[in-house]
Amino acid sequence: MKKTLITLMLPLCALTLNAQTKAPVKKTTTVKNPTTSVKKTSTAGQIAFKSTLDSASYAFGNTMATSMKNDGLGSLNYDLLVKGLKDAFGGATPLISKEKAQAAISNLFITVSKQKHAPAINEGKAFLEKNKLQSGVQVTASGLQYQVINRGTGIRPKATDTVLVNYKGTLLNGKQFDSSYDRNEPLELPLNGVIAGWTEGVQLMQTGSKYKFFIPYNLAYGERGAGADIPPYSTLIFEIELLKVNGK
């Protein structure tokens, strides 16, 4: 849980280029020169790869597109894609800054990801809308929901404090993904080093308290999820017991 509670930064899509692409071959001839032998591949009605550069160029495009397609992207503006490649190889000044380029890629994949995971997003939204009507449930300005199970009388932590807690985390379907109770080992952590829902929520507690938190995906692990146990865009439920603040 020490790893899963750490805030996850949104990376840009990694375009892996380790796949191999093979073209169908119907006829192969060998063209020789004094220093090398190059195989020329041709297929009726298709492009012929006349060199390793030709094959690799196609492989680059096909492999990158396959990776992006697996991430949910259906198409690109191919004219601008080719222009971007030509400008980079030709040393031309980019039409947009590096920062804007990174933001554009990030925003595109966020949009695609939300479309892909719409069922999980809608499930979380519907749950929170219904849950906030339950007796004892309170809602903060950020959308965090909580319910007081036991109210302690000790000190209240600040975001910069280190706290000792017991906790249990579950998905909306009831599946438990972590529990310090099961390990019989409370967790000590810096309150500003965890997901936003924890940072905000635990500051509402006094030592000796036990709260139940209902955390929207944007205050949890967002579009990335966390490992195999927490899918992307998951609304999470935590029971948290605040034992100590800064060892006290």
Rank of each mutant, 00 (worst) to 15 (best):
Y58T: 03
G247W: 11
L95S: 15
A88R: 10
G74Q: 14
V112I: 15
D71W: 04
S42R: 06
L5F: 14
E241F: 03
K132A: 14
S67K: 09
N70L: 12
R156T: 15
S37W: 00
N173G: 11
V165Q: 02
M1Y: 05
L189W: 00
L53Y: 12
Q206P: 05
K2A: 11
L81H: 05
G247Y: 11
N192Y: 12
L95N: 13
D87Y: 07
L191H: 08
K98D: 13
K114E: 15
L242A: 08
L5H: 04
N33T: 11
K100M: 07
K132T: 14
V139Y: 06
Y217P: 06
R183K: 15
P119L: 02
G124D: 04
F214I: 10
N122H: 04
L242E: 05
S142K: 03
T111P: 00
S37E: 13
V139D: 05
K83R: 11
G124K: 02
P157Y: 00
Y167A: 05
K98L: 11
I237V: 15
A101K: 08
L17V: 08
K125M: 06
D87S: 13
H117Q: 07
K175Q: 15
L80A: 13
A104M: 09
M64T: 11
D161I: 14
E123C: 03
A104G: 05
F109K: 03
K27E: 12
S209M: 03
K210A: 10
Q176C: 15
K248F: 06
L128E: 01
I47H: 05
L171F: 04
E99P: 01
L191K: 06
A44G: 06
L17N: 15
T93L: 00
T63A: 07
A226I: 01
D87W: 02
K125T: 14
L172D: 06
T162P: 00
A104N: 11
P94T: 05
H117E: 08
V139C: 08
P157T: 01
I230E: 00
A159R: 13
N107W: 07
I47M: 13
L17E: 13
Q145V: 03
V139E: 12
A101N: 11
I155E: 09
G152R: 05
A19T: 14
